[in-house]
Design a protein around this nucleic acid. Structure first.
Lengths: 209, 209, 209, 209
DNA sequence: TATGAATGAGGTTTCATTCAT
DNA sequence: TATGAATGAAACCTCATTCAT
């Protein structure tokens, strides 16, 4: 391992440390209330250093979303070529969704919230492209499975993209809705069962008679 | 009409003007990027005047949400006692959702975004209570219908509250997801068909075999 | 009584009502924290009306000081020509001071605080003149008595103006100091005994051996 | 001298620069009319920088008072154990008072004005505690000397705390009164002789026959 | 590469004062 | 004379970002 490489690795490690600190702070405070200073301090770095690794606050935040989106996408993709029935595949999607939610619920919530006009408009083209890339990767995988189901006559005939949207939207909706209910009413987190129920209904609904 | 009444009416009109201006600005900019100055200027008023009608920025924003939530709640409630089948009732819910979305999509989106930790924590108790009130009103109505379906043996037996959550979450999810897709990919707005599809699937899924 | 006169009287009555309301508000809130709106509301008038009677907030406040100063001055003056010893006269001053303090401690405190650069600079010449007039009236009376004491050989020979300043300053000092101690330590109001003690010391100190 | 130490010193120097600028501005304008912007500009800094050194305007102002109060307290304390008569000690108090006044009359005036309801209520508990600490330190020292005088039979028997209050109040009163007279009548500053006179009277008055 | 002190634009909010009715 | 809605200037304060070291 040459010096170059070691440096590269060191740099990547530092980047991850910042991301970890940022994740914690954004989770607790939300995007606007989180301050670069607090993130820096949690990463045991100075504010200025953050800007050596990320262009600005926005991109630091979005990097987190991209990370989780990339992970989600790759997990989703793994399902496509498995040797199981399409219904089971959709069931696996549900499990992936649940796992990712449980792995880092707050950033996932942020991810879904992020995708609103306010935040989206300020992103650099580069970051935007990455966001799209990972987002569509997951989406394509879902579409493929839905299509498979339709082709095999297992699912009702319908537009596969739209069906994929429904699955994805339901995921986002349950996560956000349950989160907000929890905040409003001090209830406990019941994303998992709600997600299960929603997907069971949809899978049932998907089936061709 | 006495002077008192005319003044009252004038005041209400002015309030509505501010709300309209705020709606436009918040829709385009989001809560944080919107400025009171811009809202005031759009309403052709001075910044100070806004504070005669709303305690602060937060409350101005939340008023918009409460308005639409109240409307949504009352429309949803109307469905409960109609003399139609439960499946049709759920279909009507879907229609109400679509109508409300079409009436004011941007504030609805804001409403769903609003309900995240960051924003929710700063609301006054009073506003919070109203938010809860209207929110739970709609929710209760949905629960009632789901329950009716289960009791009549038309819907699968399951926890009615959870089923209502699924419906509501799906609504929120579709609205947010389609909105973000639109922003990301410059696509056109296809909330309506997606909502239709999602509800059709769920209604089908809901049915007892 | 003609119409003119009645109007005049009515106007004066209204002015007094405003002053009364202002006194209450300024006493509780202090000059800066008091708002014209609150004063107006306490006087059961609208903010605009206040400006028909007083040029601005500053002058409304100063009017209160002038009132109490005028009262203080006239009470002090009454002492001068009484048929009693000079020591007794100084004792009477003390009593007048105590009475005025007890009549309206908060405005008196405000009066002493008022006389600092911040406030004093913004007064109109006219108000300034009145302030001086009443202030010097009281002062002159005290000087006269001190002088009488010196002339009669009862008091130590010293500059009468300076001695008058000491008396007056002691009054202000005790009032302010006790007030601030009360605020800092939640103690009770002990202006009266402190004032008695201070004057007893000074009267004793004043005596020629 | 290490880097740490140099930085520390540099920081302290900057703090003092700000305090100096603030002192000037507060002296001329008073607390409310002074603006952070003006203070910053006088210190040749940007407004934001002030907030790196002081939490807010209030605390910047109070820091000035605490500084002078601390100085005053320590000077007063030095008098207590000196090997001189109690009368001389009280005379020394007077000298300390005069010195402190001459060192920084404007902040001293502000200090006495500060201690009024309006300002006092907004202080943080921490600052309040410091204020009390230094204030009571000076006060205790005075009480001790007065007590010594009474115990030795040199002073009239009376409540030492009350006597200390009189001394302190006279100090505050003379300073404020003379200041306001100066402002009202454009007279010159005669705090020093007035203070001398007042204390001579009081010392004489204090003596047991 | 890392620091962290300094920046300064910009936002929210208050409230004395005005003026059309 | 009285109103009170509207004004708008101005203040405090925050914090993402920069840059000299």
């Amino acid at each position: 391992m040459g010096i170059q490489e070691r440096k590269q690795r060191e740099k990547e490690r530092r980047r991850q440390e910042i991301l970890t600190a940022a994740r914690e702070v954004f989770s607790v405070k939300g995007f606007n209330s989180a301050t670069m200073e607090e993130i820096a301090s949690k990463a045991e770095l100075s504010p200025g250093t953050l800007y050596l690794y990320f262009k600005n606050k926005e991109e630091l935040h979005t990097s987190l979303s991209i990370d989780i989106l990339a992970h989600l996408g790759s997990e989703i993709e793994k399902v496509v070529d498995q040797d199981i029935s399409v219904e089971e595949k959709v069931g696996r999607f549900r499990d992936v969704f649940i796992n990712v939610y449980e792995y880092d619920s707050s950033i996932l919530i942020n991810l879904f919230h992020l995708q609103s006009g306010e935040t989206l408009h300020n992103l650099s083209d580069e970051v935007m492209k990455e966001l799209k890339k990972y987002s569509s990767r997951a989406h394509r995988a879902i579409i493929a499975v839905v299509k498979e189901g339709i082709d095999k006559g297992v699912f009702t005939e319908d537009h596969p993209v739209a069906l994929a949207d429904v699955l994805w939207a339901t995921y986002a909706g349950v996560v956000l809705w349950v989160d907000s209910k929890r905040l409003l009413n001090d209830e406990k987190d019941f994303v998992k069962p709600t997600l299960k129920l929603a997907f069971d209904l949809i899978i049932k609904g998907l089936k061709a008679e």
